[in-house]
Design a protein around this nucleic acid. Structure first.
Length: 485
RNA sequence: CGCGGGGUGGAGCAGCGGCAGCUCGCGUGGCUCAUAACCACGAGGUCACAGGUUCGAGUCCUGUCCCCGCAACCA
């Protein structure tokens, strides 16, 4: 009960990290940090997915070995995690020996739900690729790129009896023993599950795609990447025998993007049921990020790298923006304008300045001495509830209610008036109470901010916690001049 | 009739049956402790369009138009 396990999806290493990966990392980090704050034992795992034809192809393009490509890309994701101040305690790579071995153990454990059959598909030798019925139909049976008819090809694959588990998975989603949030995603997957799922092919012939984990006892086949990648969530804990696995599975929350919902809300739970393992308690599905209203893409040339954004105001501001201004339950948009505005208005003016004015007043009027700080008094039920539901945006709204409230309080109490000599209407004792309340409120805010902006929270605590002001160098969030165009 | 999400003041969003709300931006005023910051007030919306249900509809139903994603082994 006191253990907490949170994961992100493991990004595929065919491309560099983008804003979506960064946001997902940060969201999961909030959950992990909050759980630690609540005194739980936490495992927070991220990683990279590195096998498959796509990687092999990409490596060939770059004239390197797949190993080299994935080493390099995996490193980029590790760098990103560091730059975002992630607190992950694991980073799994699907090329880790332990993962490969354990994936084979899992395969064997699933044996009674795996069978061999022919996969029939439409193949274009020009593309060296299978195409779906729909695509073939759309193109009227002729590949538009090569102007040759698709061939009907058969390939021997292993299949997983996904169909046998759809009802059980559906029930778990309906009863919310496996809670899919938000509701829109829950409804989406329920409608898929109601239609029923076909068995899925889970291996590829080794001579076609060599870059994968070998199927146990069959050297001609490798595991299909997706099937094997999903297993990372338990192999990283050391399934089946490791203590961590026993202590931390099922996951408390798995964080994914909407594009891979089916894999995590249909196939993965089916695999777990087949392994007779409990399902994750919650699957949180975030949306996608657009840039100035457009989908990020290379062809549009509008891709922004996370490092570029982090570089502007630092990781704390990055975390803040993507957690509060990208809606937790739907798609969101990034523009430099709104990012600048959020930084200057909310971080610098509202929060940073509240800290600054409080700090300076205590220094100026009381030589930096705060005295007894009263305990926090706000009802944060809304904040807690928001976080339980992974509504990071709402949780931060609640925190900012307090920030604004504090600024209002200061304006109403007018400490600079009370600080005047008694003859001029001042009141030393009342002043001390007002300032102590301000400090108390800031410490409470720092507490609430800890999962979101750990460095900022620590700085605020550093200033006020000891009952005497310990000033910091400069200001929390130096205001930036915004250049127009 | 492939599936889903959405169209609410200049911008971004909330509201999902009972006087249309928040943040930014804009205007006016206040304050002076503070990062030219903070606080108050104000202007600005026929809630995409057309029907319907209802005592009463952004809010429910029907239809239309527009935008944006996803469409099975491709992450």
């Amino acid at each position: 009960m006191n253990n907490y396990y949170v994961t992100t999806a493991i990004p595929y290493v065919n491309d560099k990290p983008h804003l979506g990966h960064a946001m997902e990392f940060v969201m999961a980090d909030v959950l992990a940090r909050r759980a630690r704050q609540q005194g739980k034992q936490v495992i927070f795992s991220i990683g990279t997915d590195e096998h498959g034809g796509k990687i092999a192809e990409k490596a060939a393009e770059l004239k390197v070995k797949p190993e080299q490509l994935s080493d390099q890309m995996s490193l980029e994701f590790k760098e990103l995690a560091k730059n975002l101040s992630l607190s992950n305690d694991r980073f799994i790579r699907t090329t880790d020996e332990a993962h490969e071995q354990r994936a084979q153990i899992i395969w064997k454990a699933l044996a009674s739900d795996i069978y061999k059959a022919n996969y029939v598909g439409w193949y274009c030798t020009g593309d060296e690729e299978f195409f779906t019925e729909t695509v073939v139909k759309e193109n009227k049976g002729v590949c538009p790129d090569h102007n040759r008819p698709y061939e009907k090809l058969e390939e021997e694959n292993y299949f997983f009896k996904l169909s046998a588990y759809t009802d059980a998975v559906r029930e778990a989603v309906e009863k919310a023993s496996f809670a899919v949030v938000p509701d829109t995603r829950r409804n989406e997957i329920l409608s898929v599950l109601k239609e029923g799922l076909d068995d899925i092919s889970i291996s590829r012939p080794k001579d076609k795609i060599g870059w994968g984990i070998p199927v146990p006892d069959d050297p001609t086949q490798v595991m299909y990447v997706w099937f094997e990648a999903l297993m990372n969530y338990i192999t990283v804990l050391g399934y089946p025998e490791n203590k961590d696995f026993k202590d931390f599975w099922p996951a408390d929350v798995q964080v994914i993007g909407k594009g891979i919902l089916r894999f995590h809300a249909a196939i993965w739970p089916a695999m777990l049921l087949a392994l007779k393992l409990p399902l994750p308690k919650q699957l949180y599905v975030h949306g996608y990020i657009t840039v100035a209203g457009k989908k990020m893409s290379k062809s549009l040339g509008n891709a922004i790298s996370p490092d570029e954004v982090i570089g502007k105001y630092g990781s704390e501001a990055f975390r803040y923006y993507f957690l509060r201004h990208i809606p937790s339950y739907s798609d969101g948009d990034f523009t430099w304008e709104t990012f600048d505005a959020a930084y200057n208005n909310e971080l610098a003016n509202e929060l940073g300045n509240a800290v600054q004015r409080t700090m300076v007043m205590v220094q100026k009027y009381q030589n930096g001495l705060i005295g007894d700080i009263p305990p926090a008094e706000h009802d944060m039920a809304q904040y807690e509830e928001a976080l339980d539901q992974c509504r990071f945006d709402r949780a931060l709204d609640e925190v900012w209610e307090q920030v604004r409230g504090l600024n209002q309080y200061i304006d109403e109490e007018k400490p600079w008036e009370i600080a005047k000599p008694a003859a001029a209407g001042g009141d030393e004792e009342h002043l001390r109470e007002v300032l102590a309340y301000q400090c108390s409120n800031l410490l409470e805010i720092a507490d609430l901010l800890t999962p979101f902006m750990p460095d900022t929270a620590a700085k605020i605590q550093g200033i006020f916690k000891e009952g005497i002001i310990r000033p910091i160098e400069g200001t929390l969030f130096p205001k930036q001049e915004i250049k127009k165009q």
